[in-house]
Design a protein around this nucleic acid. Structure first.
Lengths: 336, 336
DNA sequence: CTGAAAGCGCTAACAA
DNA sequence: TTGTTAGCGCTTTCAG
């Protein structure tokens, strides 16, 4: 394999100066003579010198790595957010290391430990849908480890976070359905402990009220966020004596599950049943009919999250929650 | 911030023994007395000691990090492959650091440099669609830096790789179209320099021949792999005096672009135009009509790639190319 | 203006 | 059975 990287030592030996001289020259320390500095810099460039981040890390106790934990790597939502995080991290010379909780509480805790062992400087996490106990996050805060959450968050007084304006988005959806003439509007939520489930449910209820629609508990269904369980939830809704004429799904996969069940039941979208999702741009346009949706500004959410992270990494400001405005984009799936 | 991690030194001081004693005890060195060993291990566990990977890396010149470069992070194909890579890397105690070339040649070269600066032990890359010059990869090989490629590969005699059986897959598609009664079969390819474009084109031609269909150069279109350019390519095909009755798209996004153009032209899938893609399971089922496709075993491709990487990391075996069998899954989009 | 030395956390060869 | 020392690559006093 041979030696891959030139060290200060190598350069020093070659020029017959000391290591510290080389080090100083390379960082423009004023004490070094111009002539020597240029000579050293020239050689460094030739030899393709780049400082060993491990050595620096050891010295400065800083790895320039930031850990990200997401419930799922393959969905467009998370990968797009990761892209956003990565873009600002790269600007700051940071790398991101990604761990996947697979929507499992245990794996989430495990990932936190592993990333800490790898000496990330801090964590950005989106909670698994199983997680209801938040002790592990509280512990991180106590240990002074920088932590920022996004989308699925907890402990807002302790942990900085970036979220969508979930309640307001839900209300917009209900209003939109109402304007299009839909009257029995169902909501398929995720697990109850999730903040997004709760907030969107509140918005749903507020929206119904604003439209003077009678809330019917039978029209609120829960699922575990999988395609299959969403489909099952929709089937239950369709079997009601008085089934809904519109349904709102809490995220991408759920929305697709709903559409699938509706089509399988032989109903037409949007004529028989209107559908609105909480989805990103790309997926909304790819399905058929194109899905009206609240679009998450995912890439931007990632960027904002990273910015918040760096803000908290470097100073001791109190936690804040950034709320991103959402946009309802009307497509075919809800235009009766 | 305070000190985050306990070191061997801390443990040694607390027990009044030397650092090396602690080090040895922790790794079950036979020289240490049983009593002392247990005492040390107990304290280490209590204090939550974990070895500092930076120090280890510095010492062993091994970072346990592997760099991945993909053309795009947000597509299901790549994130799923990354998941596969990550799963076997994690088993071996390795982390993956991901860089995104955004389908740009320059960014690809830049990413390689950055990852090397970060001291990854080797690279796994899928080429950007812009890349035709392969000098940067040749250089890596010369420097003895472990490199494995997947899907979009080059220099097979120099670089180990994992690919799908592209030619055979293409042939299966043509045969399938033929069996369903389609006769004017078009192919929308990616940029010509890409190995996948070439191999699938060869398979396409071989398939036509096997079915005794006359190849028509007008039925082969190229695009830059974006949704929009695929759509444009399909529009060109539909404007031919003698337009195709079936079309095969080189990947997910392209297939969706084709479908979109076909629908916009007021044609029906599969009655007027059959469509087959080279797509993953998930996307194929979400679009409408469900898309017949060659399914990439993406997660597995990631795993195989990582296994190949580790094989070459540890020994000096000659480069090999692993060819994964594909599967044609028939769905509605091609069943006239 | 430049060099020597200590120290970041760890291992391994060498002493005792 | 345990301790001492050197060294991985780098920065930073402290001494010239």
């Amino acid at each position: 394999m041979g030696k891959r990287h030139v060290s200060l030592k190598d350069l020093a030996k070659e020029l017959n100066v000391s290591i510290s001289t080389v080090s100083r020259a390379l960082k423009d320390h004023p004490d070094i003579s111009n002539a020597l500095r240029t000579k050293i810099k020239k050689l460094a460039a030739e030899r393709n010198y780049s400082p060993n981040p491990l050595a620096m890390g050891l010295l400065k106790q800083a790895t320039r790595m930031i850990g990200i934990i997401v419930p799922d790597l393959v969905s467009h939502f998370y990968s797009s957010i990761i892209s956003g995080i990565e873009s600002v991290a790269a600007d700051k010379g940071y790398f991101v290391v990604i761990a996947n909780s697979n929507e499992r509480y245990e794996k989430e805790k495990e990932s936190i430990e592993n990333l800490l062992k790898a000496r990330v400087e801090g964590l950005i996490v989106c909670m698994s849908c199983e997680t209801s106990d938040t002790a592990h996050f509280r512990q991180l805060v106590q240990k002074g480890i920088p932590l920022v959450m996004f989308d699925r968050v907890c402990l807002p007084n302790l942990i900085p976070a970036v979220v969508a304006d979930n309640a307001e988005a839900s209300q917009k959806i209900i209003q939109h359905f109402y304007d299009r003439g839909y009257r029995r509007i169902a909501y398929v939520s995720g697990p109850e402990q999730m903040n997004i489930s709760q907030e969107r449910l509140l918005g749903y209820r507020a929206g119904l009220k604003a439209c003077s629609l009678e809330p019917d508990p039978a029209l609120v269904e829960f699922c575990d966020l999988s395609f299959e369980s969403a489909k099952a939830a929709m089937k239950r809704l369709l079997q009601l004596a008085n089934p809904p004429d519109a349904v709102y799904g809490i995220n991408d996969t759920v929305a697709f599950g709903l559409m699938n069940a509706i089509k399988e039941a032989g109903l037409r979208i949007p004529e028989d049943t209107g559908v609105v999702g909480f989805t990103d741009e790309f997926h909304s346009t790819v399905v058929s009919p194109p899905l009206t949706s609240i679009t998450h500004p995912t890439f931007e959410m990632g960027q904002k999250t990273a910015e918040l992270f760096f803000k908290h990494l470097n100073s001791d400001v109190p936690p804040e929650t950034i709320v991103l405005k959402t946009q309802l984009i009307e497509r075919l799936s809800s235009s009766k």
